[in-house]
Nucleic acid binder design. Sequence first.
DNA 1: TTATAAAACTTCAAGCTTGAAATAATTGCC
DNA 2: GGCAATTATTTCAAGCTTGAAGTTTTATAA
Lengths: 154, 154
Amino acid sequence: MVAGPTSVGPGKDRLRLWIRLLRASRTIEAELRERLKKEFDTTLPRFDVMAALYRSPEGMLMSDLSRFLLVSNGNVTGIVDRLVSEGLVTRARRNGDRRTSMVRLTEEGSKAFAAIAAAHESWVGELLGTVSEDEARRLTGMLKSFRSNWEGRE
Amino acid sequence: MVAGPTSVGPGKDRLRLWIRLLRASRTIEAELRERLKKEFDTTLPRFDVMAALYRSPEGMLMSDLSRFLLVSNGNVTGIVDRLVSEGLVTRARRNGDRRTSMVRLTEEGSKAFAAIAAAHESWVGELLGTVSEDEARRLTGMLKSFRSNWEGRE
DNA sequence: TTATAAAACTTCAAGCTTGAAATAATTGCC
DNA sequence: GGCAATTATTTCAAGCTTGAAGTTTTATAA
């Protein structure tokens, strides 16, 4: 997924775009992962889960998390397990539907997340610093239209 | 890495861009991974390694692969191990420098890759079909300038 | 009611990934 | 030559990831 097309022709422009997109996100992701580990001794998946929960003080179901984060159900189980054992998150069985459990940030988790998120935002600002604000908005617009087209496919 | 910023302010545009970028590449990556598995019983990392080797008939060192694919050394070891056991790749100790080994596609590997790559390219064309050719080129240009700025940082 | 299906999760095996530590070979310096 | 530093690679533990199979609970419908 990282090697480029060697020939030319129709369809190659999209392949080129895909390869660039993937390389850019892998590059940034690797840098963020490394800093999260070094500065906060945490991981990207844990950060993702906490970010989702931070936006939902009322809590989220495991399946909500899975859908929102675009990862599998079993995956979320493991990440939440670890966050629970670190005291950053709670998993509460519900009375209404005993199959589900509501996942929430603890007080400690919420405080920890706020600090990490601030650093994270400034890192992204730094790493994407060479992209002008204007360009950033245009790129975002294109990706947004990609997303809505994607969601509307059969 | 997937949740969005909730507030506004300077720096938020780049954060928004990053989140969109990551969601787009994860979405496409997941789809490609699934199809590679279903149609060819292979994985994205194996495909990546084969793609790199396909461009270098003379072969690549493990460290070349690692650098080119943006993954760790130890990671490449495992993927190449599996490709070797599948008969798609060879690892030849060199006489010049016995620390290194030259990795090459086998005849079979080369044939297999060509078939997969053709499908892969058409999938990407399909999945990015809603991005116009013109937009694709502009986006690629922006990502290219991001890349060269990145490589030129201290 | 009471099977049957559907939904929410968890468990598991296999593979991917990193970073650190270990091996082995080469290079540079005295 | 001999020895320290460097380079190329492998090994390993811990964690991430998926898809499939299993468990428990809820909904459906004859």
